[in-house]
Design a protein around this nucleic acid. Structure first.
Lengths: 235, 235
DNA sequence: TAGTGGTCTAGACCACTAA
DNA sequence: TAGTGGTCTAGACCACTAA
């Protein structure tokens, strides 16, 4: 006889998810109380709790005290993306990574940057433009503003050798991030930088970070033509 | 005297995260064993475990049995997106939702769709094109292929009244999803559908779903000009 | 092979909130 | 206000893996 294994929370999750997927429980339906599920499946309540936590994270069920657990009536697709340092991302594709500093200068933040940070007034920051290359072809063009108030030391760093991306990641942790994606039509300048045709549709990733309430950096990363961002395989 | 509250796992997480953010522990550094942290902070080991689980989910630390817990040396930005049914998304902006079926027909899957599903050969599926509107303006144009093998019933549904998006979400759960973003230059046809200029840069969201190994549907959703996808506020 | 994280259990008490 | 999920604890055993 095969030894009866103790049930893990993944087992419990799979059983419950199976019942949701095969529509034993339909969107909006209420599941039994954790305690009853535990009794029925022969495990501790905390094991059910752990399984439920996973189903909540996945967006499959919603839980409320006293209200119980229900299959979400308005299912959402929950996707997670990991965005690494550009160098690591390039090297992960097997390509050779390259980097070029395009410009570096103190400047007053334009209105768009003031808005991204939610500043009250424009401020002098470090403005850095740089190109990341994969096998010598443009991979990402980044246009970055770095707060001198929180990252003054970066002015002593040689940004033609080490990208601001890399330096910040290793020296300036953040506690809050605002992240967005959109499509951008390349203008003449950008097209030249990305070695593509003016008017090309490019995917842009915009990131703004703070440490508590203090601005750190905001960056607009324009990706190479045809670039796709793929989500982790989920659920 | 204020009552000494028992420490919650969130408290523990905040303490640890604080020590990482203020660089008491730097990228690559090893943290103490859970048991020692528990003793130092006066809580049970399982509470530390719960806090650590959150830090792992956030991408801040990595844990290995015997190897211990280390601050990630290659920090990643981890972003989570919730993608709701288009109707819900539009209504959440306060706009009035509208929907128009553009076309619906059985057809052999083109090469791109065969590839997305990873099929061995083309297959007859239901091809549906539809436009979602926000305050009567184009919001999302979706080009969808639905597997007849797994979703044959949908042919009995009046897709001019209810979007395939909505029907599928409520009747066809999936267990696997492939999700990607990219930018697309509008051609003549698409520009007309989205009421924009040919050549406009549009953000595209592509989703392909399976139930176990069985294809369900694949959809290319072209968003309106200027559309941004914003991540949940994290960390 | 020894050390560390992963997980399960049983029980307790708390915090929300639907009814 | 009663019922349900959320969390903590102490202890046990297991599963990985660095050394």
């Amino acid at each position: 006889m095969t030894a009866p294994q103790r049930r893990s929370w993944q087992d419990i999750r799979d059983i419950l998810r199976g019942q949701i997927l095969d529509r034993s429980y339909r969107p909006g339906d209420k599941l039994p109380r954790d305690e009853d599920i535990a009794a029925a499946l022969g495990c501790a309540r905390s094991t059910v709790q752990r399984a439920m936590q996973d189903l909540v994270d996945t967006g499959l069920v919603a839980r409320k005290r006293k209200g119980g657990t229900r299959v979400r009536p308005d299912p959402v697709t929950r996707a997670t993306f990991d965005i690494a340092v550009t160098r690591v991302e390039v090297e992960a594709t097997g390509a050779t990574y390259g980097y070029e500093l395009v410009s570096q200068a103190r400047a007053r933040t334009p209105e768009a940057v003031v808005a991204r940070f939610g500043l009250k007034a424009p401020e002098e920051m470090l403005h850095v433009q740089a190109l990341h290359l994969a096998d010598a072809a443009p991979y990402v063009f980044e246009d970055r503003w770095i707060s001198l108030a929180s990252c003054g030391e970066i002015e002593a760093v040689d940004l033609s050798r080490q990208s601001a991306n890399e330096w910040l990641v290793h020296h300036k942790p953040y506690s809050r991030i605002d992240l967005r994606f959109y499509a951008l039509q390349a203008d003449e300048t950008l097209a030249r930088q990305m070695q593509t045709a003016p008017g090309a549709a490019l995917l842009v990733l915009e990131r703004t970070t703070w440490l508590e309430a203090v601005p750190i950096t905001t960056v607009r990363s324009v990706t190479r033509p045809g670039h796709q961002i793929v989500a982790q395989n989920e659920a």
